[in-house]
Design a protein around this nucleic acid. Structure first.
Lengths: 338, 338
DNA sequence: TTGTACGCGTTATCAA
DNA sequence: TTGATAACGCGTACAA
């Protein structure tokens, strides 16, 4: 594709200057109407496609946004992307999508490439599992426009869009306590950063609020994926009878679904032998043998808000840093005992 | 981000020419080792990030691929994207992802923008519903490198990667006939292009092969989404008893899932009152109340093969046009009566 | 080994 | 209203 038609080609064909062609094609006012029509016609017939690469070089603006997500097959994220697209579609931005497969190395690599491509900004859901913000801090400090969503890094000068993780986790745990009277409640957690930490805090807060025992063996630190939930649940299942929990709060639905698998394989039944709740409202949640009680996350809305905030941040230097929180709703099904 | 560090900045800081810096940074052989080290160090300390926009302008190569999919929330496509990424990740290409929401207008728009951005090639799963290939024909004729996947346009000079739609549809329909003895079989079809057409053909071929009646009222032309399946099924449900089908072959799983909803709402039971099979092997298929018998499509593999073919087409002018077919497998569950 | 000149396609700026 | 020139950041080709 090195043989593209350029402004100069059209100009030569018409006996005018490239500048005039540029003006005509960009609807500038200072072009003779007759000239403009000739140009438009010629551009059409020659199959001209404007070269945004050259435009970008001049304007230092690419109309391009890099989207970095940890797990494209986790249904939450495609839905977020749809929300992002609703916004970008109406504002001429294109999306570079990169899926990091939960690997921080791949994430750093992707961000490096995206910066080389001079994206106007980045939407990031972090896959970092360690509590070290220095990488992101220097990214933001370098002037790169970033908005975090879902798995956010707060307090480093970038806006964030997330759900009220702590509160939601508190509420769903409270539901298990209040409504069902469980007292022995375990937690299948994610890594102790970002949403993993907050959801853990919500869980702990609920137990404390009701003076329930907190048992270290009930708090498993795992990951966000199905296998992690499966493995974590296996550890719980190994617990002796007297320590066996009555209910489990999972960090998200994929993890919960993995746990359900482990429970079923152990020949136990939900919610009688053990109740379980998730977080996400995955597309599969209502379809499980025992439909999963969970926290509904408005993924589409998260994507939309994040994209809006980023574009405003890109286009206005005065835009403030915000931590935007979108509300969740409890989705009560039957895995909790209801 | 117009204040980026350039080669010239580094050059000035070091008292050398920009060219020397360029050579050092690109690991060219003809640079003094001492100079190279100084440059590398300075580049690091000044926070230099190479400008791919400028590089692309010079080289007419962007290391960028446009991916056009019709429906990002249909789980098949995220899985395809993962397959694409496995390939692009290892070859330094970035993906522009655009979701057209099954709207051909949006697709044309997206392709136009992607061409302006001078992507090196396009991976397209078409959302067109009309049987007019002229748009794609002129796209390919213009020299744009295109590989179609899943919803392909064949015979216009672009490679395609798809599953053996006709055969698979034939086989799953045969299963209903052979294994279960159904004779009155309906089809909830997609638009009559690409996979819609082929899956319809497979269905018809099966009926003909076994001398079964073909009833126009049993062939509903709909769409690929859940609502389309729901609506189509409602039409079948309105049929008088003597014309009521015993089994339904759906063009894909989302459509089948919509149909299942309609069947359940009508108070009928699957498979006793009516059997149903799909096509895709959606993540939800095994989780339905009556697990869905369907055709498993190797989405990841489709993505991988398509990306490989496109990159080869981009990098070698001599690359031939191929219609690549990846095999499916029947996924027998219980909605067929098994 | 290093530097200079030029071009990639476009637009801002100033002159005609 | 139109055109000439320079610049965006980089790499090729050639010269020193």
């Amino acid at each position: 594709m090195g043989s593209d038609v350029t402004l100069k080609h059209i100009a030569d064909a018409l006996g005018v200057s490239a500048m005039t062609v540029s003006r005509a094609l960009n609807n500038r006012s200072n072009v003779d109407e007759e000239t403009r029509e000739k140009v438009l016609e010629k551009a059409q017939s020659m199959g001209y496609t404007p070269n945004h690469v050259a435009k970008s070089l001049v304007s230092s603006k690419t109309y391009t946004i890099g989207v970095v997500i940890p797990e494209i097959t986790h249904a939450f994220f495609p839905e977020v992307v749809r929300g992002i697209e609703e916004v970008t579609n109406n504002s001429d931005y294109q999306l570079f999508l990169t899926n990091t497969n939960e690997q921080f190395d791949r994430e750093k690599n992707a961000i490096k490439t995206l910066r080389s491509k001079r994206v106007d900004g980045l939407l990031i859901s972090s896959s970092q599992t360690e509590d070290d913000v220095s990488y992101y801090k220097s990214l933001v400090d370098s002037g790169t426009k970033v908005v975090f969503f879902d798995r956010c890094i707060e307090g480093i000068g970038a806006s964030t869009v997330s759900v009220n993780d702590r509160e939601s986790s508190l509420k769903i745990t409270e539901h298990l306590i209040n409504k069902h009277g469980y007292t022995k409640i375990a937690h299948l957690g994610g890594p102790h950063v970002s949403i993993g930490q907050k959801r853990l805090e919500g869980y702990l807060e609920a137990l404390e609020k009701y003076d329930l025992p907190i048992n270290d063996k009930w708090i498993i630190v795992g990951g966000f994926q199905e296998e992690a939930g499966y493995d974590a649940m296996e550890k719980l299942l190994d617990l002796p009878t007297e320590e066996f929990p009555e209910a489990v709060v999972s960090v998200n639905d994929p993890s919960a679904i993995g746990a359900v698998k482990a429970i079923e394989e152990a020949g136990l039944s939900i919610p009688d032998d053990i109740a379980i709740v998730g977080f996400t409202d995955d597309i599969r949640a209502p379809l499980l043998d025992v439909p999963l009680t969970t926290v509904h996350q408005p993924a589409y809305e998260v994507g939309k808000r994040a994209a809006q905030k980023l574009i405003r941040t890109i286009e206005r230097d005065s835009e403030t840093v915000e931590n935007i929180v979108v509300p969740t709703t409890l989705k009560i099904r039957s895995s909790c005992g209801c």
